[in-house]
Design a protein around this nucleic acid. Structure first.
Lengths: 347, 347
DNA sequence: GCAATAAAAGACACCGGTGTCAAAAAGAAA
DNA sequence: TTTCTTTTTGACACCGGTGTCTTTTATTGC
């Protein structure tokens, strides 16, 4: 005879209620819930019937306490691009939809020196099952180490391979940028300007490397005045545009390291009376919603950020997701060039 | 003599470790943690010293189990505007920063019939402390009822007052739109077009009401061909632009119910060779990042969405936040007109 | 048909807090 | 000093699951 339990009151049924109803011990119910092996068929059916009749849902708090782990995935980010963050979130959420896991968001101050304490504090409080890091903070090795030291699984998202395959989801930024710039060259452009992302950002380096290798392969020149710095913000694009365009000899095309800066360059071009795209071709990066709303609609690179969210979830929780083999997941996902109307052909 | 506890191993200290260190019972430690009244000074100091020495952090899972409530706030949303969602999230997170609470996001399918089951399922699994609803789903009374029935506190965000004051955070969309359109009129516009938001959206109604009352107050005419339908997407703005602008007599100004549609109207205007802003003034709504990147930069209405996030958090958890009196919180926050360059004056 | 062995199910402690109520200590009155 | 209150503190069960080890049941071999 199994252990007795007090009768269920009007609140949610617990594992004890199910056990009493099915005439088994709570441990057996636990085994059924978790799909543990070594259960006789009739026993499992009895329990499942009881679960169905009572509408029992296991209490995640209790499981979390017993397992010393919360069914939570944290997303740490300091990414300024809302669309990117939200698309990523949605990819993750799609992947974990029918599991017990929930996604919690935790923006961190990029500038703050206290990031590590902040993250540590969060980990101690919430004890999440796993964590995801979006760029640019995904590039910080000290954060990854902190997660490892706390026994928290993690996945780092980036535009390059930042970690071992199981801890990493990447896109092939460099190749795509190279491809995009080669397209520009194929359409007759020989004098191409470049707007860089902020110093210390891996993504900025990747995009620059792609740009440079296309220029090098085509044996084109690149003088210093064709390169402008930027910080991924619109205003920095405006200023870069002034540097590159407000001069007698100006490039016929510009690659900007993200869409916001591309929009800034377009802003300046328009203010200078430059006709777009006939007198100046522009390519951006991100495929932000703005890109298609600009005039002319901006040719840009689309980051597979939703798919990266799904993939990150699969890497974090392969054993909880159906049809997922953790060892067979890819590391790199393809970015693609979205060709719109901001690039013209030079005769 | 207090109850003994096993010595602490190398893992995180628990309440038992603190109790042993301080030479008191765990219940007393619990009282100190929770700031319960009726504790003698020296006792409290001893315990606090022990907490500090061990670096003790209470385990939220255990508290959640004992209190039958998770320290979680859910954000249910089906809002298509990433910037809005993220700004709101950040407002909430700012407000709850130094508490035990975490924010989990839960997008719901706007079109799905299964929203209620979906939400119910989530509530049963995670048992959150409270919930927030972003428009447009915040307008669904059946969802609010579901939350009430589950004993979950909630706050509904909207462009109008949707619920009782303690369950509601609103912005004064109607008045601001009215003000914006009156500005248009003050600058000489007499023939003004309107692009509406989707049917069944309260926000669309509010904005339309504001528009209409400005027109009515100025005793202007509004013929049916000056009103175009839309669904808040860029493409619908493009089509609305065609309807309103591709004709011999066209309005001198257009109010679009959000920025994306305003961008669509601008797109069409440009395609039709209409000179902006001289031949056509445009006002949008949302102050999305796109708005300032367009050419000309778009005059628009800024929703105080970050502040609404903070306020929503305060309404949900007044007792956990410092300097917050739940009864004295406002319901309505002010939207403001951001004047940029997309409106011209008619002589 | 019975003992030896393997497999299934159960008993019970435990995860780390909180609620309840009883015991102890402190303060007041005699 | 002793007794009666009033506070303060502690013992213990409980929240709802899981891990470990023991007991029971089923299977196999002779």
């Amino acid at each position: 005879m199994p252990a007795i339990s007090k009768p269920s009151d009007n609140s949610k049924p617990t594992i004890n209620d199910v056990a009493a109803r099915a005439g088994v011990s709570k441990k057996t119910v636990s085994r059924v819930i978790n799909g543990s092996p070594g259960l006789r068929g009739p026993m499992r059916e009895k329990v499942q019937a009881a679960i169905a009749e009572l509408g029992f849902v296991p209490n995640p708090q209790a499981r979390a306490l017993a397992l010393r782990r919360n069914f939570l995935i944290v997303l740490f980010h300091d990414n300024p691009n809302a669309q990117t963050v939200l698309n990523f979130q949605n990819g993750v959420l799609q992947a974990i939809k029918n599991t017990d896991f929930a996604l919690v968001v935790r923006p961190v101050e990029r500038t703050s020196e206290g990031i590590l304490e902040d993250v540590q504090d969060f980990l101690e409080r919430q004890r999440p099952w796993g964590a995801m890091l979006l760029p640019p903070i995904s590039e910080r090795d000290d954060l990854a180490k902190l997660l490892r030291d706390n026994g928290v699984r993690y996945v780092r998202i980036g535009s390059a391979i930042l970690d071992t395959p199981e801890h990493c989801v990447a896109s092939n930024d460099q190749q795509v940028v190279e491809f995009a710039v080669k397209q520009l060259i194929a359409r007759g452009h020989r004098d191409i300007g470049f707007v860089r992302g902020p110093e210390g950002f891996r993504s900025a380096e990747e995009r620059e490397a792609g740009f440079l290798s296309a220029i090098r392969d085509a044996k084109l020149a690149l003088s210093p005045e064709r390169r402008a710095g930027g910080n991924y913000r619109f205003e920095s694009g405006v200023m870069a545009g002034q540097q590159l365009l407000d001069r007698p000899d100006r490039p016929t095309a510009i690659f900007a390291s993200n869409d916001e800066m591309a929009a800034g360059v377009m802003h300046t071009a328009r203010a200078l009376g430059i006709n777009l795209p006939d007198e100046l071709s522009i390519i951006g990066f991100d495929d932000s919603p703005t890109a298609s709303h600009l005039w002319p609609p901006l040719t840009t690179v689309r980051w597979p950020i939703y798919a990266m969210g799904q993939l990150a979830a699969q890497k974090l929780l392969p054993e909880f997701l159906p049809n997922v083999d953790g060892k067979k997941l890819p590391v790199t996902l393809e970015s693609t060039l979205i060709e719109r109307a901001s690039v013209s052909t030079i005769a």
